[in-house]
Design a protein around this nucleic acid. Structure first.
Length: 271
DNA sequence: CAACGGACCTGCCTGC
DNA sequence: TGCAGGCAGGTCCGTT
């Protein structure tokens, strides 16, 4: 479900609904996520107030002043703010309950997501401290990609999906931004020119930015915090379109596998 | 250090 | 209709 635009959409949805709210309790129905949900949250969270809701890469950070919740949605997670009266579904693993009879409900069928707690600044957490720049940040550009990629033999698609290189480029937007910049996904990262990396970083910003503007991409059942789907799917040019005509040149879109992930590209437009 | 494969899970779709 | 197999939006970790 979530790539960075979906996480950003979720952030924008939940922030105004939970910021400055007092936490009444936490209900952990299923602690077995990627890492166990700390049972200590049951005693630590009640009485704390949400002081801020931010994002680093695909990690959502809820600051309480005493510590921060670090939430990742994995492949299939989502967060909604709803009435505590709404009965939980099978995969609604955790509720953060506020004192206004609403709760932040974490649902994640595949349980690849996580909910962790840190009492240090979250950016020092081991999951966050080695993350690369934000793709929409001013320190992410062609020069940065060019410099970091010298000597690297890994394919450029896997390079830009490496969170130490840049955060938030998932499988959909990797294929889409490489198509948009005319770069073949299989090319070794270390053999791409600075100019082409500038095109790539521009494309990444454009594609991610447009996807956020559309509320993310809904493939199966992504819904934002208010239950609305994303509308970027109709903008996709290559993802999931193997065999279909390229929108630029009519050549059939190819599907290959890189590192056990599907990659879609146009063999004529992308060189 | 870089690269790769395996691991963690459930749901859905396809094909027999 | 049932069932096995493959695949899915992520990313960490251990091994080469």
């Amino acid at each position: 479900m979530p790539e960075l635009p979906e996480v950003e959409t979720t952030l924008r949805g939940i922030r105004p609904l939970i910021n400055h709210k007092i936490i009444k309790s936490i209900i952990i129905r299923e602690p077995r996520l990627r890492w166990p949900v700390p049972s200590s949250l049951t005693t630590k969270l009640p009485g704390l107030t949400v002081q801020g809701v931010t994002r680093r890469g695909k990690y959502l950070l809820i600051d309480t002043g005493k510590g921060s919740l670090i939430i990742h949605l994995g492949m299939s997670g989502n967060l909604r703010v709803i009435s505590t009266k709404v009965a939980p579904n099978k995969h609604d693993h955790v509720d953060i309950v506020f004192d206004n009879n609403r709760c932040l409900r974490f649902r994640d069928p595949r349980r690849f997501g996580c909910i962790l707690w840190t009492e240090s600044p979250p950016e020092q957490h081991s999951l966050l401290k080695n993350l690369g720049p934000e793709p929409l940040g001013s320190n992410f550009d062609g020069g940065y990609l060019y410099q970091l990629s010298r000597g690297r033999k890994v394919a450029v698609k896997q390079f830009i999906m490496n969170s130490k290189v840049v955060v938030g480029i998932g499988n959909i937007y990797a294929s889409e931004s490489l198509f948009s910049s005319g770069i073949r996904p299989t090319i070794a990262a270390g053999r791409i020119s600075k100019q082409r990396y500038q095109q790539l970083s521009d494309s990444i910003k454009q594609v991610i930015g447009a996807a956020i503007g559309k509320g993310g991409t809904t493939l199966r059942d992504f819904k934002d915090a208010n239950g609305k789907p994303g509308y970027f799917k109709q903008e996709l040019k290559v993802y999931g379109k193997q065999g279909q005509a390229c929108k630029t040149c009519d050549t059939p879109i190819k599907l290959i596998r890189q590192g056990q992930r599907a990659t879609y590209y146009c063999s004529k437009c992308q060189v």
